[in-house]
Design a protein around this nucleic acid. Structure first.
Lengths: 213, 213
DNA sequence: GTCTATACGCGGATAGAC
DNA sequence: GTCTATCCGCGTATAGAC
């Protein structure tokens, strides 16, 4: 365990790169272990299954991101009584960009992995995130509710899930969308630019006028 | 080809039901063919591959839905010069509900299949839909642009893709969301209710105020 | 033309030796 | 902890029966 980093980390590093490039189902454990130069069976020894490996890859980011986001939000709450909705969403930008210090291109990697993971793995990732980071999520959801208190709880439930869909899908296809925008509109975007485009959309959606039908 | 419906239709019917229930990757051809009581190899004979079977399942709905939606939109355009954005989205409701006449629970099945398909199959379904139904899509996109002409084309590109994410993710998880809403808020929703909830969200998002950063 | 039996290669997972 | 050998289910391809 000296000259080369330990097996577990080697697997995580190789898996994260391949998952982000090719997606989860298109990335076999045989490919991961050959790139990481470890034995195939070591994945099952260290992680138990491919699904748990996926969760572990995401957890390395979530463990950094979630506390950062909560701290930033707490600080803002201490400063002002009422936070405009769009600003609640904007709180997430700095913690996301901090992930670039964790690993090169960390922000993009994390958001792609999160988007693809949420989308490809019907259920198990949703469960993992809500059980392991539930307090952070509740804190954020509460802040959103407080910023637009006139929206009923049930409506807020739906609109926050619409928002989840927006962000997850956008991040999963961010690469393709940036390519199209470059080709068709001569726009050069990075992941931060995309985040800043989607925030006003989500804020307007959550705060949409009520139906009276 | 007399006493029981033909093999091709038996496969499509069984596949559509299983795909909607369990998703595409979780549904094996062996399961489909055993439920349909046909031979495994007949899928390859009639459809060529699993991907093409998925496309064929969706095509049965799209071939009905797309012309209906275009007709409805053309009729509305003939009636009034300027159509409010939310009304452009609402045009899709009746064509969607018409699918219930095609098959029992057709609307729900179609939207679940579309959502899951767009999400699970990175690319091939997107390509299939844009090449086979491109004119219908362009007609709809143009109507959206005309209803909010002040939004630049590039911004509209991003916002329509955000909208795609919203609708696709919502429909793919509609069952789970309706269950949660029933348990937590004592709300009884069907798929039409969900559609009518998401339309104001999307309309507000597309029409969100511009950033001036 | 339509259907069937069968086989190939690849996927994730695991038992057991070291 | 690590490695080999092996298992079973998957999508796919094909030879040949009807």
């Amino acid at each position: 365990m000296a000259s080369r980093s330990d097996t577990k980390t080697r697997i995580l590093d190789a898996a994260e790169k391949l998952f982000a490039e090719r997606g989860f189902s298109e990335t076999s454990l045989r490919l991961i272990t050959s790139k990481a130069e470890v034995n195939l069976a070591s994945v099952n020894y260290h992680f138990g299954s491919k699904k748990e490996l996926i969760r572990a890859v995401l957890a390395r980011y979530l463990d950094v991101f979630m506390p950062l986001a909560t701290d930033e939000l707490k600080q803002l709450k201490a400063e002002k009584q009422h936070i405009p909705l769009e600003q609640v969403f904007s709180v997430l930008v700095n913690p996301l960009l901090e992930l670039n210090k964790l690993r090169p291109d960390g922000t993009t990697l994390f958001l792609q992995l999160l988007g693809r993971g949420y989308i490809e793995s019907q259920g198990h990732l949703r469960w993992f995130i809500t059980t392991h980071y539930g307090e952070h999520l509740s804190f954020f959801v509460d802040a959103v509710s407080e910023s637009v208190p006139e929206i009923p709880k049930a409506d807020m439930f739906w609109r926050l899930h619409f928002t989840l869909g927006t962000i997850v899908f956008t991040m999963a296809s961010a690469d393709a969308l940036m390519e199209i925008a470059a080709a068709d509109f001569n726009e050069q975007n990075d992941i931060e630019a995309v985040i800043r485009k989607v925030i006003p959309y989500m804020a307007a959606g959550v705060n949409a006028p009520q139906l009276t039908a």
